[in-house]
């Protein structure tokens, strides 16, 4: 294949990765930014979204698009509920202690993973894409659904940004992030904000998973890669920075796509990890993060 089409394919693949990664990492970043909690179970919320998407789309007969749309609405809500309960049952009892919550979320990771293995099983199961359209380019064919994932993710990111910057809920969340105690003094119910943020973070991961599941099937171990990549993205972008997260996701996704098409996927991972190390050395707060107060 010639260089031009080759690069185009690499860029397309990279953009799909970026799109899904941006949503997942945004969830992680939001939880860290507002609650100062490192949520190690984030990848499992992603997996849970995909597994539920499979369950919902199989339960609903008719055109695959109907089941998919239902999954896109219901799966994130259910995952949000699980996260809400986890926050209420576990994290709140630990007073959001940073070390305690890391250990607790590691525990959640294993619990969710093993429950999925028990009730869903070890198989990788496919979800039918809502549209089976193959875009025929002169050099190769490309999945129309993958392009729609990029678009859907962009729309969702814009919505999240609008919610955070233009609504009262966003204002409350930002206030809590900025200074918890002052926010409380102004009558903001911090605990409820925390529960909400934790649920929204998990829901973002679940939405990303529902979008990706028609491309790569639902499997109980699928949460590991997104977790690792989300951490990389969040560290590079700056913890708690929405803009940084999106920029870093596009950077990592595109470089992953291009490097792995032209060289090797292993090299792409090596480079991503190296970038993280460099960022931690030279700009510990991340590209767009603000220094810790």
């Amino acid at each position: 294949m010639h260089f031009g089409p080759h690069l185009l394919l690499a860029a397309l693949e990279g953009l799909v990765t970026s799109a899904v990664l941006a949503l997942t990492a945004l969830g992680l970043s939001l939880v860290f930014g507002v609650m100062r909690i490192v949520n190690v179970a984030h990848g499992e919320f992603f997996m849970l979204g995909a597994v539920l998407a499979w369950a919902i789309s199989t339960a609903i007969s008719g055109h695959p698009a109907v089941g998919f749309v239902a999954a896109l609405v219901i799966a994130p809500l259910l995952v949000g509920l699980v996260a809400f309960l986890a926050e209420w049952l576990v994290l709140r009892r630990l007073n959001y202690n940073p070390e305690g919550t890391i250990v607790a979320t590691i525990g959640m990771l294993y619990i969710i993973q093993q429950l999925a293995l028990t009730f869903y099983g070890p198989e990788a199961r496919p979800v039918e894409p809502p549209l089976n359209y193959r875009i025929l380019l002169p050099w190769f064919g490309y999945s129309g659904y993958k392009l729609s994932v990029i678009a859907a993710s962009a729309v969702l990111l814009v919505i999240t940004w609008l919610v955070l910057t233009r609504t009262k809920i966003g204002l409350i969340m930002r206030a809590t992030q900025y200074d918890r105690e002052t926010a409380q003094a102004f009558g903001i119910p911090v605990e409820r904000v925390y529960a909400g943020v934790f649920a929204i973070g998990a829901m973002l991961a679940a939405i990303a998973a529902v979008l990706i599941v028609p491309i790569s099937q639902a499997h109980y171990l699928m949460g590991q890669d997104p977790l690792l990549l989300s951490f990389i993205v969040v560290i590079i972008g700056g913890l708690g920075s929405l803009r940084g997260t999106v920029v870093a996701a596009i950077l990592i996704g595109l470089s992953d796509g291009i490097v792995s098409v032209f060289f090797s996927p292993t090299l792409a991972k090596i480079i991503a990890t190296l970038v993280v190390a460099m960022v931690l050395v030279f700009r510990p707060q991340g590209l767009f993060g603000t220094a810790a107060r």
Binding site: M1, L9, A10, A124, P126, I215, S216, Q217, M222
Partner: peptide, 29 residues
């Protein structure tokens, strides 16, 4: 690996047979 499109450009155009052996959960993809 969970996504494969990125490997396909390495398949030479004059290929007559693709001999594939993949294992693990991502084979469908």
């Amino acid at each position: 690996e969970s996504s494969f499109t990125k490997y396909f450009p390495q398949i030479p155009a004059e290929t007559e047979v693709i001999y594939h052996v993949m294992v693990g959960p991502a084979v469908l993809t």
